[in-house]
Write a protein that binds this DNA or RNA. Structure first.
Length: 479
DNA sequence: TTCCATGATTCTAA
DNA sequence: TTAGAATCATGGAA
């Protein structure tokens, strides 16, 4: 009230802080000084007590005050007093540099492509978000139930959205991120961030508008200058910058977790189990004429090996290229698997008493024989008896060619076979009938994916140990 | 510690 | 979209 009392000039008129009499208002110079003092005192008293009154009374009082002839002059002086006292303290806080932490967050989000100038996430926000840690003026400066209700509502929305945000990103399961998933996850983070940022901006704007309207309304009964409203907007923006900071921190954390999982997934490499490798090799060498398993076959292999279809595809890709690069070793391996397969088939024949007892689903040999029936790389004749016979033929062939299973004979590889292999090599590309590299081999095709000679070394027709078309007198390379 | 095997990724061609 | 080829990075044996 001291400031208010200073408005009374010694001359009996209204003066500003500089002591100058305000000439623009009709101050009623001809009125007695005591009367004017009393009148102004009444006005001030009404203003001070207006918040103690009921809503209806306050509204009525507001109207009376607004219509009072001295109100403009009085408010002008009050605003000036406020400007030069309370608000001057704030002025010193306004020119703070941008928050370095927020700038770092902005930089990271921009670098990761999550936020950027075109997305409205980075620079514009940073411009608004200067110095998040300012004082708590809004709460103390504006005592209004609407304000508090709105603030509580926004806080609740913020926390709800924060929970939703973390749920949407769904990075808490500890699962590994594959390369193909990385971009998708990053895009998901980007989308969630932009959505949440949009909500944040909307809430910020709504709240700012609400407070501005509130202050304008109050300016009818309180000395609130437009400049003060502008400052209040700035303060609100700063307050909301804390929310923005939280949002950006959460997003950065999500990106870092994603990247960490992704890199971990790349680094981690576990060899497949021995059994899985055996199954894959058996399939590979039994389909050496066309080692391109169908999707169904891949799925079956993946299921049996306990790996993914992608891993099966990788394995076959690696196997094909490494087989071609190191044919000598591959031949040894092929012989081993051929013998093993045939032995298993023969064992089935012996134990089950013939073709009728062939165990399609059981055993490793049965496994790929079963797959053969599904992808049709095998002979079109899929009768159980023929399959068993094929296995037996293959076994006989391997044994006859190798002279048993001695390591010496298994490891010796005639140059003629290698040369023939290299000369007759046919890639799927060149074999393709319509130019597509992934066309499956026609069922009746008798050509070879790689090294028909090598397959001849197994059963002579390049058709997965199918001895049915083997010529009795066909001379096989000596192993 | 080194070397090799191997699963995975990336790039290119078809 | 798939396969081939090159390459990377890790696991495991020597």
């Amino acid at each position: 009230m001291e400031d208010g009392q200073r408005m009374y000039s010694q001359q009996g008129g209204l003066t500003n802080m500089s002591g100058n009499v305000l000439p623009q208002y009709n101050m009623g110079q001809d009125e007695p000084s005591d009367q004017r003092k009393q009148e102004i005192g009444d006005i001030l008293q009404q203003i001070m007590t207006i918040t103690d009154q009921s809503l209806d009374e306050a509204q009525a009082r507001k109207h009376t005050l607004n219509c009072h002839r001295m109100k403009p002059a009085l408010f002008s002086v009050l605003c000036e007093i406020k400007e030069k006292t309370v608000l001057s303290i704030r002025n010193s806080q306004e020119e703070e540099p941008p928050d370095p932490q927020l700038m770092r967050l902005d930089n990271m989000l921009i670098a990761e492509g999550v936020a950027g100038p075109e997305k409205g996430g980075g620079s514009s926000a940073a411009a608004n978000a200067t110095a998040a840690a300012s004082g708590g003026q809004p709460d103390s400066a504006i005592e209004h139930s609407d304000y508090r209700a709105k603030l509580a509502q926004i806080r609740q929305i913020y926390h709800t959205e924060l929970e939703k945000y973390e749920q949407d990103l769904d990075l808490s399961d500890g699962s590994e991120i594959k390369n193909s998933d990385y971009e998708a996850k990053l895009a998901q983070i980007r989308q969630v961030y932009q959505t949440e940022y949009g909500k944040y901006e909307q809430a910020c704007n709504e709240f700012t508008t609400h407070v501005v309207n509130l202050l304008r309304e109050q300016s009818r009964t309180r000395p609130i200058a437009p400049k003060e409203i502008e400052r209040m907007v700035t303060i609100i923006r700063k307050k909301f910058a804390a929310i923005e900071m939280q949002l950006k921190q959460s997003t950065c954390e999500a990106v870092m977790i994603l990247r960490s999982r992704f890199l971990d997934a790349r680094r981690k490499r576990r060899n497949f189990s021995k059994q899985a490798t055996e199954l894959l090799n058996e399939y590979f060498y039994s389909h050496l004429s066309n080692p391109y398993p169908s999707e169904e076959a891949k799925e079956e292999l993946a299921r049996k090996c306990g790996i993914t279809v992608s891993q099966v595809s990788n394995w076959f890709g690696n196997k094909r290229i490494r087989y071609k690069k190191n044919i000598n070793k591959a031949q040894e391996e092929a012989n081993m698997y051929a013998a093993k397969t045939a032995a298993a088939a023969a064992a089935n024949v012996g134990s089950e008493g013939g073709a009728a007892g062939y165990n399609v689903g059981g055993g490793q040999a049965g496994m790929y024989m079963n797959l053969n029936g599904g992808d049709n790389y095998q002979s079109s004749d899929n009768s159980v008896g023929d399959n068993v016979q094929n296995q037996v033929n293959a076994l006989r062939h391997v044994i006859s060619q190798s002279g048993g299973y001695s390591s010496d004979s298994m490891h010796s590889t005639p140059a003629s076979m290698y040369e023939q292999h290299m000369n007759q090599q046919i890639t799927p590309h060149s074999r393709s009938q319509n130019g597509s590299p992934h066309d499956p081999k026609p069922e009746d095709s008798t050509d070879s994916w790689c090294a028909g000679a090598f397959m001849q070394g197994l059963d002579g027709d390049g058709d997965n140990y199918d001895g049915s078309s083997d010529e009795p007198g066909l001379k096989r390379p000596k192993i």
